[in-house]
Design a protein around this nucleic acid. Structure first.
Lengths: 173, 173
DNA sequence: ACGTTTAACTTCAAGCATGAAGTCATGCCG
DNA sequence: CGGCATGACTTCATGCTTGAAGTTAAACGT
């Protein structure tokens, strides 16, 4: 068994054949850089973004997004399925979160009068106060961690890249 | 109380004052686009990247990265702290993962002979087989979900942006 | 030598996410 | 009409992550 190297996305086991054929099984240097960068974003940022909210308001990022999106909706009410889409979560995840919010008196759920299959989540005044209190903390964190380190071109590129990669789940269940 | 709108990172409550002063409390259109894009990446991609690995090998992305990084290290051994850094996880998270791997016979832990404070994780042959089996599935997913939708310029920009945003935790605990 | 500090883990309890299965309201088709 | 299919949730068991507290080894200062 050869001395250990090379399972994954690094140089290939066989070091340097002449005239590299494009190889679908491994990533080249540029691809690897993009991938490792994305991985560290995806694995490290959530915690960084959660922390300030968690400390100040006891909210996770996803919980904050949930409250925030309801607060921005007309009449501060939103169907669960629309909310799940906006907050980038599954219906199951959202349902659990909203249940906890309801127990804290921040949100109330009721069947949609126009179609009983939908559930409408409505923000209470207490819930509104929570978002208003948390918003500045959140915005500050977003600026410090994300926006400030990037140039305008970076921000534009980020939006473009995210749009290309965004794969909305076919089923939100 | 005014009709509900505007808590968070959207247009400001007061619609259009003339000659916008730069406002630190809210995000403008470009900033918001970059931010919402990043959020959906960060919230949706992990699940998308986990799925193929989970289905084929019962591994999460983080678990795969763990095994993969050990397999690429000299002699297929790595200190826990280095591994945690490479895999973008906390030492606590890694410790739990490696414990499970050890129970499955994929990894063995031992104190570093050169400095007893370190723990060295070594990949077994069985563990090596697992990575070798999972790698093609993983690479295929990375290509389909991330690399293929992006141009070379996009990939370059992504690597640059990730480097700017990467905030390695000061303490990995 | 010896206590103190630092740092690398490890452990465990609490809380959250996931995904499969169940419930229920509508729409649809015969 | 009546049953079936669809889609929007809701629930719950399982497993994982988190963070605080504990353990141990080396370095450091006296």
């Amino acid at each position: 068994m050869p001395v250990g190297y090379s399972v994954a996305m690094t140089a290939r086991p066989t070091p340097d054949t002449v005239g590299d054929p494009p190889d679908d099984l491994w990533l080249n240097a540029e691809e690897k850089e993009a991938w490792t960068g994305l991985v560290s974003l995806v694995l490290l940022l959530p915690g960084q973004l959660d922390a300030p909210l968690q400390q100040h308001s006891g909210l996770s990022l996803f919980e904050y997004l949930t409250l925030s999106h309801i607060s921005e909706a007309p009449d501060r009410r939103l169907r669960m399925s629309e909310l799940a889409f906006l907050a980038n979560g599954s219906l199951s995840r959202l349902s659990n979160v909203v249940k906890r919010f309801e127990q804290r008196g921040w949100v109330e759920r009721s069947p949609d009068p126009e179609d009983g299959r939908y559930t409408v989540a409505a923000l209470t005044d207490a819930g509104y106060d929570v978002v208003v209190d948390a918003a500045p903390v959140h915005v500050r964190a977003v600026r410090q961690l994300v926006l400030d380190p990037l140039t305008a071109e970076d921000q534009e590129a980020l939006a473009r890249i995210a749009a290309k990669l965004r794969v909305r789940p076919a089923d939100l269940a």
